[in-house]
């Protein structure tokens, strides 16, 4: 599994264009939105909220990239090649998931550094660490769902549905506007989305609150669903195609 993680990470790191794009997108969006949405003299709380929101948004974007990457691996026959080795499906899915987690570090780090150095966000060391660590772990359910979709879909569909899922889940999960501003009938659905719970996890962490049990439980539930979905799709990907 570690050898697989190493190989996939190596492939990724050698794709300079992809790495730059993974950084440019969240950085641009963060700078743009914080300039547009924040007042001239924002409070530290506002700065933190904006940074955490954009870091989360960037992390989700990176999950979509991983989803498309997996679909590409299927298209060129790499997944089938892996299936012909003794590697177990669990090892492949976990290895690829860890690689996707590595990729998520790019937008998280970039937005975090910008927040600290450019926007002047103040948090003590434990808060910084706690917030970003929890965001990094909290993204796991979305990574597993993304991998599952990638194992299942063609590259083109992975692009389309990846983006669609990203938009819909971000919208109803309150990543763009807080869910109390969404229509009343959407709100109950919003509360069970992994994106809303992911956002809540990061907001709680940055505010120094212990995450609510409901948040952790719903994210854990999504992680289990995502893992089952990813394993099922990976097994299927070798059979068909």
């Amino acid at each position: 599994m570690y050898a697989y993680l190493r190989l996939e990470t190596l492939r990724l790191l050698r794709d300079g264009g992809f790495i730059i794009m993974s950084l440019v997108m969240p950085v641009t969006i963060y700078l743009l939105f914080s300039a547009l949405l924040l007042s001239d003299h924002p409070t530290n709380d506002e700065l933190v909220t904006s940074m955490v929101g954009m870091a989360g948004f960037g992390a989700l974007g990176s999950v979509v990239n991983s989803c498309v990457g997996v679909a590409e691996d299927k298209d060129i026959g790499w997944l089938r090649q892996l299936r012909l080795t003794p590697l177990s499906p669990v090892a492949v899915v976990v290895g690829r998931g860890l690689c996707a987690m590595g990729l998520v570090l790019l937008p998280l780090t970039a937005v975090g550094l910008l927040g600290w150095l450019v926007k002047g966000v103040h948090l003590d060391a434990a808060h910084w660490a706690g917030t970003f660590l929890l965001m990094w772990i909290g993204i796991i359910p979305m990574i597993l769902i993304g991998l599952g979709a990638g194992y299942l879909l063609s590259v083109q569909k992975a692009h389309t549905y990846g983006l669609l899922g990203y938009m819909v889940l971000s919208a109803i999960g309150g990543m763009w506007v807080t869910i109390d501003r969404l229509p009343g009938w959407v709100q109950p659905a919003s509360k069970i989305t992994p994106t809303f719970r992911f956002g809540q996890l990061s907001r709680d962490a940055s505010a120094g609150h212990t995450p609510a049990i409901a948040t952790v439980a719903i994210l854990a539930g999504w992680a289990v669903i995502g893992a089952a979905f990813a394993l099922y799709s990976y097994r299927r990907s070798g059979r068909t195609g």
């Binding site: 190989l7 190596l10 492939r11 050698r14 794709d15 691996d73 060129i76 026959g77 790499w78 089938r80 090649q81 012909l84 080795t85 003794p86």
Partner: peptide, 17 residues
């Protein structure tokens, strides 16, 4: 169990390694 190795007809090699 690793008792079988295979070369398939279709599929290309992964780039950048």
């Amino acid at each position: 169990s690793g008792q079988v190795g295979a070369l398939l007809q279709e599929g290309s090699l992964i780039p950048r390694v």
